[in-house]
Design a binder for these strands. Structure first.
Lengths: 237, 237
DNA sequence: ATTCAAAATTTGTCTAGACGTCTATACCTA
DNA sequence: TAGGTATAGACGTCTAGACAAATTTTGAAT
């Protein structure tokens, strides 16, 4: 490899590795070459290679695990749509750091649709949660959830604290719940959703509509989720 | 300085410098000691100091300029409320990188308030722009702007492209405009605004309401802006 | 006093080497 | 077979030195 002047070598190495990754030479999830192998390939010092890798880690393209090696970050997350799949488990399982943060919440009266799915009378007070789910700080999905307000009064604070709906529901005695129905479609995002997903408006989102029920089969949550189609793939068994 | 085991030296240096900054030893805008001075102070190699500084740069606490030195990043931006102050100029002048991105836009009919400020009839079609202004990637303010749709048809695309209202207005032949009135108040942000500002809902925002007029005195823009009170201070001459 | 060029200062990049920490694996032992 | 241990492989940290690039300061010439 010969270096062009005017651009630091570590940046050129970063660029080359980035090209390799987008060309599929290193596929998502793959182990990258070790530092010493890259040293030999590029004919530079180990520290120079490390500088380039640090930049790739910084931009979330690769992930480094001490003692194991560097891996191409899976940018497209396989999201199994099982009846008991939990967001944080899926993301953690891929060595990525999950986060779910509340954007806004409100208590309002159930519309006909919401009431139907939650099996309550229209006009019943429901809690609306609007949240963004992220992995390593990259937004994967935005969700609008509805829960009956009477049963889950105060759940908002717990959700904000624990950043997990599963955890919040546990505080209400629900140790186990499962997904009842899921409807899937593809749409273009509203500008608000596109912005929260940090994605262009002309890139589609996968939209799911689902109802969660407790162990007795009583609906506890109805939600509409928009997944970034560039970062998430839904897997149906 | 003696090092405690278990935590890398560069992290301890980072921590110490961070403490100095928050203790006011180095005030915002101040020049930090040079690398060689820090080398002498901490008794370590220059590269170790550089590793610590790189972390501070990464977290946006300091800013480094080659050949000049490192400076404590001004976290509270003084925003002069002159009649012709421009966001990008103010931010650039502080050696920070301005960015203004559109969150959403819509064409709708003017409410009574909007119509009054823009001096048009209620119901006139106006363009609503909802945008976030950032410096070095840190959100400083969210703004809702209204412009008469008839006069500025197509301005949305130009705004998205140039990321500047000043630039976009130039394409419509407005080389000069000035702020006519500004009303200032303090409120707590809606969850949407708080989230876009990446700020807690219990931290207040400075809310301004302003009207911009062209050189002939004709209103061209009415806007409501929410500044993060933790990051911006308004200066009135 | 002004202007221009050289020198000094300061940060950026690259190389070289040593040792620490974490992980995986092979091997030995009970 | 289960479990601990030794070892090799791989990333993390620290030191040392040299030169490059950008900026500021100095000083000489006009």
């Amino acid at each position: 490899m010969d270096w062009e002047p005017g651009l630091s070598i570590w940046k050129q190495i970063e660029k080359q590795l980035l090209a390799d990754i987008s060309d599929g030479v290193f596929a998502p999830g793959d182990k990258m070459p070790t530092e010493m192998e890259l040293v030999r390939r590029f004919g530079v010092n180990r520290h120079t290679v490390r500088r380039a890798m640090a930049a790739l880690v910084d931009s979330n393209v690769v992930r480094v695990e001490q003692g194991r090696g560097a891996f191409v970050q899976e940018q497209i997350l396989d999201y199994p749509l099982g009846s008991k799949t939990r967001f944080s488990q899926i993301v953690s399982g891929r060595h990525r750091l999950p986060d779910k943060r509340l954007v806004s919440s409100e208590v309002l009266k159930a519309t006909a649709t919401v009431a139907q799915f939650l099996d309550v009378k229209p006009g019943t007070r429901v809690i609306e949660l609007f949240s963004v789910s992220e992995a390593d700080g990259v937004p994967l999905a935005v969700a609008t959830s509805y829960l009956p307000a009477a049963r889950f009064d105060g759940i908002v604070e717990i959700f904000v604290e624990t950043k997990s709906l599963t955890e919040a529901l546990k505080r209400f005695g629900i140790d186990d719940y499962s997904r009842k129905t899921t409807r899937i479609s593809a749409t273009l995002p509203s500008s608000r959703v596109a912005n929260l997903l940090k994605q262009a408006r002309n890139r589609p989102v996968i939209s799911t509509e689902s109802v969660d029920v407790d162990s007795a089969g009583v609906p506890i949550e109805y939600g509409v989720t928009a997944f970034s189609s560039d970062r998430v793939q839904l897997i149906v068994e």
